[in-house]
């Protein structure tokens, strides 16, 4: 939860962001590589899952939505 919520495209204060990231590093004691793998899998996995689920749903749409 440690990031400033952006409404549209406001520039974020670099100092605030830096303080937030430092605080996050104190709370989550993951090695950078492990964190990248973990978060990277999440970012890569979600779109794949979404496309597959949506395709499956549309494939069965005659039964589900018709």
């Amino acid at each position: 939860m440690l990031v400033p919520p952006l409404h549209h495209s406001e520039p974020t204060d670099p100092e605030l962001l830096d303080a937030i990231v430092r605080k996050l590093s104190e709370i989550v004691t993951l090695e950078p590589t492990a964190a990248i793998v973990l978060l990277g899998l999440l970012v890569a996995g979600v779109p794949l899952l979404l496309v597959l689920l949506a395709a499956r749903h549309r494939g069965a749409s005659g039964r589900d939505d018709g």
Partner: peptide, 16 residues
Amino acid sequence: GGSIGGIVLVPLLAYL
């Protein structure tokens, strides 16, 4: 989604 994106991506990019 914007808030969640910040929660996930800002730390990811910071580590990268």
